[in-house]
Simulated scan of single mutants.
Amino acid sequence: MHYEEFRREYTAGGLTREMLVASPLRQFERWLEQSVQAGLEDPTAMVLATIDDQGRPWQRIVLLKGMSDGGFVFYTNHGSYKAEAIAGNPLVSLLFPWNELDRQVIVSGRAEKMSLAESASYFVTRPRESQIAAWASRQSRPVSARAMLQKQVQVLKEKFGNGDIPTPDFWGGYRVIPERIEFWQGGEHRLHDRFLYTKGEDDGWEIEQLQP
């Protein structure tokens, strides 16, 4: 394959300072709403990057599950690789790749564990099968065969019956409090539009345009 041949022009539209609002969180919500209206398949999918205790970066796709207290919310097993990395180094990065709109949003900030009450409030809204899956999986740990997971799911279905499924104490939410957020809009001839919001000492936001 000739990878250099995969090339296209970005013509979805430009981005100017006048189009931006003062709060990057409000600007993000505006773009997310436009992504939903455009019919993107997974508008809340985001790449989460962490650094482990040996300084090695790792990335994976997770789903944004809300915006609260000035942060981006997702949920995971507290024993997962991502949770263990955050415990050692809470500095993380998020990337929303809205390729169909020639857009991406990059978030740099600090991840903090949410309370059990906050996590439980979300857990009860999950489909029952997803609740059981949270109990069945020791996320990121080795497994010899998928059949073992399926057997554990069946055991849990019998255990819980038709009753309510409690929130696992090893599962919950994280909130990423942003310190920098960049909005990127693709432009023709690789002259992209980039605007970076940086949080100031007074919790206000400064905006500067970056060269592509």
Rank of each mutant, 00 (worst) to 15 (best):
M1T: 15
M1W: 09
H2V: 13
E4Y: 14
E5D: 15
T11P: 08
L15Y: 02
L15H: 03
R17G: 11
E18I: 10
E18F: 09
M19P: 05
L20V: 11
V21H: 09
A22I: 13
A22Y: 07
Q27E: 13
R30Y: 13
W31C: 01
L32H: 11
S35K: 06
A38Y: 04
A38L: 02
T44W: 03
T44C: 12
M46T: 04
M46S: 06
T50A: 02
I51Y: 01
D53N: 12
Q54S: 12
Q59G: 15
K65W: 04
G66I: 09
M67R: 10
M67H: 03
S68G: 13
S68V: 15
D69S: 14
D69T: 11
G71M: 01
F72D: 01
F72M: 05
F74P: 08
Y75W: 05
T76A: 05
N77I: 06
N77D: 15
G79S: 11
A83H: 03
E84P: 12
E84Y: 10
A85L: 03
A87K: 15
N89P: 03
N89Q: 09
V92F: 08
S93A: 15
L95H: 13
N99E: 11
Q104I: 02
S108G: 12
R110S: 05
R110Y: 04
M114S: 04
L116E: 15
L116S: 14
S119M: 01
S119F: 06
S121Y: 00
Y122S: 07
F123Y: 10
F123P: 00
V124E: 12
R126L: 04
R126I: 04
R128L: 02
R128K: 06
A133L: 11
A134F: 07
S137L: 09
R141N: 13
R141K: 13
P142R: 01
S144L: 12
M148C: 08
L149Q: 06
Q152E: 15
Q154S: 13
E158W: 04
K159Y: 13
G161H: 03
T167D: 02
T167G: 03
P168N: 05
F170A: 09
G172I: 04
I177N: 10
E179L: 07
E179W: 06
E179V: 05
R180K: 14
W184L: 01
Q185R: 12
E188W: 10
H192R: 07
H192Y: 11
H192Q: 01
H192K: 05
Y197I: 06
Y197D: 04
T198K: 02
G200D: 04
D203A: 08
E208A: 12
E208I: 14
